[in-house]
Amino acid sequence: MTELHNMLLTAVPKFPRGVRLKHDEARQEWVLLAPERLIKCDPIAAAVLQLCDGKRSLSEIVRLLASQFNADAAIIERDVTALLQGLSDKKMVQM
Protein backbone atom coordinates (compact mmCIF):
# COMPACT_ATOMS: atom_id res chain seq x y z
CA MET A 1 0.00 0.00 0.00
CA THR A 2 2.77 2.44 1.00
CA GLU A 3 4.79 1.46 -2.05
CA LEU A 4 1.78 2.06 -4.32
CA HIS A 5 1.17 5.36 -2.59
CA ASN A 6 4.77 6.48 -3.16
CA MET A 7 4.59 5.41 -6.79
CA LEU A 8 1.51 7.55 -7.25
CA LEU A 9 3.15 10.59 -5.65
CA THR A 10 6.17 10.40 -7.97
CA ALA A 11 3.92 9.96 -11.04
CA VAL A 12 3.99 12.86 -13.50
CA PRO A 13 0.47 13.52 -14.75
CA LYS A 14 0.12 14.80 -18.29
CA PHE A 15 -2.50 15.09 -20.98
CA PRO A 16 -2.26 12.44 -23.67
CA ARG A 17 -2.33 13.53 -27.31
CA GLY A 18 -5.91 14.40 -28.22
CA VAL A 19 -6.68 15.92 -24.83
CA ARG A 20 -6.33 19.65 -24.37
CA LEU A 21 -6.92 22.05 -21.48
CA LYS A 22 -8.25 25.30 -22.89
CA HIS A 23 -9.51 28.58 -21.52
CA ASP A 24 -12.90 29.07 -23.17
CA GLU A 25 -13.07 32.81 -23.89
CA ALA A 26 -16.77 32.78 -24.82
CA ARG A 27 -17.82 31.27 -21.47
CA GLN A 28 -14.90 32.53 -19.37
CA GLU A 29 -14.03 29.13 -17.92
CA TRP A 30 -11.50 26.32 -18.28
CA VAL A 31 -12.52 23.23 -20.27
CA LEU A 32 -10.82 19.90 -20.84
CA LEU A 33 -11.34 18.78 -24.43
CA ALA A 34 -11.08 15.14 -25.49
CA PRO A 35 -12.50 12.90 -28.23
CA GLU A 36 -16.31 13.38 -28.07
CA ARG A 37 -15.88 14.57 -24.49
CA LEU A 38 -15.83 17.94 -22.85
CA ILE A 39 -15.41 18.57 -19.15
CA LYS A 40 -16.11 22.01 -17.70
CA CYS A 41 -13.62 22.57 -14.90
CA ASP A 42 -14.71 23.95 -11.56
CA PRO A 43 -12.15 26.39 -10.06
CA ILE A 44 -10.41 23.60 -8.09
CA ALA A 45 -10.09 21.27 -11.09
CA ALA A 46 -8.88 24.21 -13.19
CA ALA A 47 -6.19 25.01 -10.62
CA VAL A 48 -5.03 21.36 -10.52
CA LEU A 49 -5.05 20.79 -14.26
CA GLN A 50 -3.18 24.01 -15.06
CA LEU A 51 -0.29 22.58 -13.02
CA CYS A 52 -0.21 19.33 -15.03
CA ASP A 53 2.53 20.37 -17.45
CA GLY A 54 4.09 16.94 -17.97
CA LYS A 55 7.06 17.91 -15.79
CA ARG A 56 5.70 18.31 -12.25
CA SER A 57 5.11 15.21 -10.16
CA LEU A 58 1.88 14.70 -8.28
CA SER A 59 3.61 15.48 -4.97
CA GLU A 60 4.95 18.77 -6.37
CA ILE A 61 1.46 19.69 -7.56
CA VAL A 62 0.06 18.93 -4.10
CA ARG A 63 2.75 21.03 -2.44
CA LEU A 64 2.14 23.99 -4.74
CA LEU A 65 -1.63 23.87 -4.20
CA ALA A 66 -1.28 23.48 -0.44
CA SER A 67 0.80 26.65 -0.29
CA GLN A 68 -1.33 28.50 -2.87
CA PHE A 69 -4.56 27.83 -0.93
CA ASN A 70 -2.95 27.64 2.50
CA ALA A 71 -4.59 24.26 3.00
CA ASP A 72 -3.82 20.89 4.61
CA ALA A 73 -1.59 18.91 2.21
CA ALA A 74 -3.26 15.61 3.16
CA ILE A 75 -6.68 16.88 2.11
CA ILE A 76 -5.30 18.42 -1.09
CA GLU A 77 -3.52 15.15 -1.88
CA ARG A 78 -6.74 13.18 -1.46
CA ASP A 79 -8.69 15.56 -3.75
CA VAL A 80 -5.97 15.79 -6.42
CA THR A 81 -5.48 12.02 -6.50
CA ALA A 82 -9.22 11.40 -6.81
CA LEU A 83 -9.54 13.94 -9.64
CA LEU A 84 -6.56 12.66 -11.62
CA GLN A 85 -7.39 8.98 -11.05
CA GLY A 86 -10.92 9.62 -12.34
CA LEU A 87 -9.58 11.39 -15.43
CA SER A 88 -7.00 8.66 -15.94
CA ASP A 89 -9.80 6.03 -16.03
CA LYS A 90 -11.44 8.12 -18.75
CA LYS A 91 -8.12 8.29 -20.64
CA MET A 92 -8.02 12.05 -20.22
CA VAL A 93 -4.84 12.07 -18.11
CA GLN A 94 -1.76 9.85 -18.22
CA MET A 95 -0.06 9.12 -14.90
Partner: peptide
Amino acid sequence: EAAKLGILQ
Protein backbone atom coordinates in the same frame (compact mmCIF):
# COMPACT_ATOMS: atom_id res chain seq x y z
CA GLU B 1 -17.15 32.37 -37.03
CA ALA B 2 -17.71 29.11 -35.14
CA ALA B 3 -14.75 29.70 -32.84
CA LYS B 4 -15.97 33.24 -32.14
CA LEU B 5 -19.50 32.01 -31.42
CA GLY B 6 -18.28 29.61 -28.71
CA ILE B 7 -17.89 26.33 -30.62
CA LEU B 8 -15.13 24.24 -29.00
CA GLN B 9 -15.04 21.08 -31.11
